[in-house]
Each structure stands twice: as C-alpha cells, then as structure tokens.
Simulated scan of single mutants.
Amino acid sequence: MQQTTKAFNLPLLLAPFISRLGSTLYLFGLNWFVVQATGNAALLGVIQAIGGVVLFFGDLLCGVVVDNFNRKRIVVSAELLSVLGCLACAWWLDPLHITAAPLITLTVILDVGLAFSLPAAKAMIPELITLAGRQRFNAVSNTLIDLADICAPLIGGGLLALHWLNLQGFLLLNGTSFLLSFLLYLSIRYQKPTGEASQLGVKESLLTGWHYVWQRPKLVEAIVLGGLINVLYAAVRLVLPYDVNHLYGGDSAKYSYLLVMLALGGILGGARLTLARREPNRQQNYADLALAAGALLVAGLWADYWVLLVASGLFGFCYSCFEIRAITITQNLTAPDYLGRMFGILFLAIDAFQPLGSFIFGFVTDWVANWTLVIIGSLLVLGLALINHWYQRLIR
C-alpha cells in the first residue's frame, strides 16, 4: 500500500516543537546553574563534547536503522528513552551540589535518543508531506522550533527570577515535554515503505549510502556546510552565558534576551522561507552565512551588549534560512530508500567535529572572552571560501 501524502500533518509539526521547548528550557537552566556554580564555561564544554561523541557514533548507525525499520517506531522509542532518562537523572541529581556525573549521563541518554529520532522524523516528512508543500512545512516547523527557543528563555528567566525551580525542576520539565511529544508521534498514521535498504546488511547499507551521496555534489556541499555552521553555532551558544556573567553584570534577564533574539531571528528566517515562492538554491545559503559571519565579527570587535543583541538576531536569522534550505534540498534530491542514510550522514557531519569544537571553545572562551566571536566569524568566512572552491572543483 502506498503512503498517503498531504500538505500538512499536525502531530508531525507539533511534536518537535514541544520536545524542543522542554530541551531548550533544560539547557537554559543547565547553562545558567553550571556557570553560576563553577564560574566558567569549561564544564559545559566537556558535557557538550561528550554528548557530541555519543551523537557521532549514533549518527554512524542511525541511517541504516532508519532505512531498515519502521521510522515511526524509531521516533517513538527514542522519545520514550528520553522520558525515562530525565526521570532517572532527576532522582539522581542533587541540585545543591551539582556534579558532572548525572549531567553527563543524561546528556548521553538524550543524545542517543536524538541521534535516532531526528533523522527518522526528517525522513518521514517526504513520505507524509507533498512535494509542493515540503519547503513550507519545513519552514513552519523550523519557525515553531525557533518559537520554542524564544519561549524557553523567557519562561526560564521568569522561573529563575522567581526562584521557583532549581536544575532538577528544569530536568523534570524536559521529561514532561518528551512525554507529550511521544504521545503525538504515537498518534501519527504511518506505514513503513518497502525498498532496497531493507534487503541489505549494515555494512552494505552504509557503503551504498555513502556512495549515493558522494555522486551528488549538492548533497556533499549541504553536508559540509551544515557541519561547519552547526559547530560554530554551538560555539556561539557557549560564548553568550560567559559574556553575560563576565561582561554584562551576570543578569539572567540579559542572557534570556540574547537567546530570545537568537530565536526571533530564526522565526523571521522561517517566515521569509514560508512566503518564498522560488526553489531553494545554494547561492542563497552562501549569502546568508556570509552575513552571519559579518555579524559575529562586528560583535566580537565591538564589545557592547546591544551590539551582541543585534548580532544574535542576525545570526539566528541566517542560521534558520540556511537550515530550512539545506533540509529541503536534501529531501528533494534524495530517493526515499536513502533518506535515513542521507540524514544520518548529514547529522554525522554536523556532530563529528562538535566534541572537539565544544571542548576547545569552552576553554578558548575562558581565555579570550568576547574575542571568541571574532575567531568564530573568521572561521566561518574561511570555511565558506574553501567549501565553495571545493564544490566548484567537484562539479568540473
């Protein structure tokens, strides 16, 4: 029986929004309480680095799993794992004496779930959403996720100001969000398609997936650009709480506003592509990422809170536009049998260098403070030039 596609799917739209709201709220609390307890960003860098290692190995295998098994069952199982992980680590954590062990354990659990749920959910979109409605669906989905990124710091900042919750409470809120997204994914009517991947073993599946991608330069380019911008995005997220604590008075509200501007920029980027009528193209991605690099360079050279606030909004706008286009291009250029492996490779590229990047930038931020933004912006400019040169040679 052939899968029925529609222009819209409410549970598939809402589930990522709800889980993202809980996760962002938890990360907001995690970043604030850890930096407050330790006085630096080093532990955050270590936690993110370990999580990145988990994502690396998860991404290595997730594509094969997503293409061989029922994608809905994979997503549902991953969300349930995250619920149980949040509950267990909330019981383990002592909010008065924050230690690394429960936080690292939870990061491992959540990133195992993320490594399998995200590619499976993205691979379901072309099977459930029509081609004509795909970019708009991706744009609305990303806009909702960015809305979650706005709501979470506002809620988190309010909770911190009222002293209603400690880190344990933020963790329980995250578990509740995963429970709701679990129920939404469970309600989706989905039928596993049959294809070539289901007849291949793990090794053959991996090899055919890599070979398929390498024959398509636009897919290779999207993967490499995605890896670069996501590593630097994580680095920017490390700088923000450090700057607020060391340069701008340690006011949690100011940290909340930075995250709100980052997410608001993402919403505007999503709105831009929701209304766009032309097909996504690679030149637009380069223009947006160059603008993001410029915003970071200005914020790094001019250490002022209002400049950082505007730069956060511009960076969020450019990042969102790139992400939506990259996902839509990937979905449109990839055959259904290879969607899981394609997204597995994409997320593998995104996560492969994040452990090292997060670890390095956690310490670099402690050494050079706001000048870290200059380093990040310069690396983005250099990366764009090298990737474009590589792509031009690849298509000759």
Rank of each mutant, 00 (worst) to 15 (best):
T4E: 15
P11R: 11
L12Y: 03
L12T: 04
L12F: 04
G22Y: 08
Y26A: 06
L30D: 10
W32V: 05
V35H: 05
A37H: 14
T38G: 04
I47N: 04
G52C: 03
F57I: 05
G58R: 06
L60C: 06
L60G: 05
C62K: 01
C62I: 00
G63A: 03
V64A: 12
R71Q: 10
S77Y: 04
V83W: 09
V83P: 07
L84E: 02
G85W: 05
C86N: 05
L87F: 14
A88N: 04
W91D: 02
W92V: 13
H97N: 14
A101M: 13
P102V: 11
L103K: 05
L103N: 03
I109F: 13
G113N: 10
A115Q: 10
P119L: 13
I125C: 01
I125Q: 05
Q135K: 13
Q135T: 15
S141P: 01
S141W: 01
S141G: 03
N142H: 10
T143R: 01
L144D: 03
L147I: 08
A148C: 02
A148Y: 01
C151A: 15
C151P: 00
G158K: 05
G158P: 00
L159W: 03
A161G: 04
L167N: 05
G169I: 07
G169N: 08
L171N: 05
L171Y: 08
S177I: 06
K192P: 08
E204R: 12
L207C: 08
T208I: 14
G209D: 12
Y212A: 10
I223W: 06
G226R: 04
R237Y: 10
L240S: 04
V244G: 07
K254E: 11
Y255M: 15
Y257M: 14
V260G: 07
G265D: 04
I267P: 00
I267F: 15
G269C: 09
L275H: 13
Q283D: 15
A290S: 15
G294N: 00
L301V: 00
A303H: 11
A303M: 07
V307G: 13
V310R: 00
A311H: 00
G316D: 09
G316S: 07
F317P: 01
F322I: 02
R325G: 03
L333H: 11
L333R: 12
L333W: 11
T334P: 13
D337I: 05
D337S: 08
L346S: 07
F353R: 00
Q354K: 05
S358L: 04
F359R: 01
T365F: 02
T372Y: 04
I375G: 06
G377I: 07
G383C: 12
L384H: 11
I395S: 12
I395K: 15
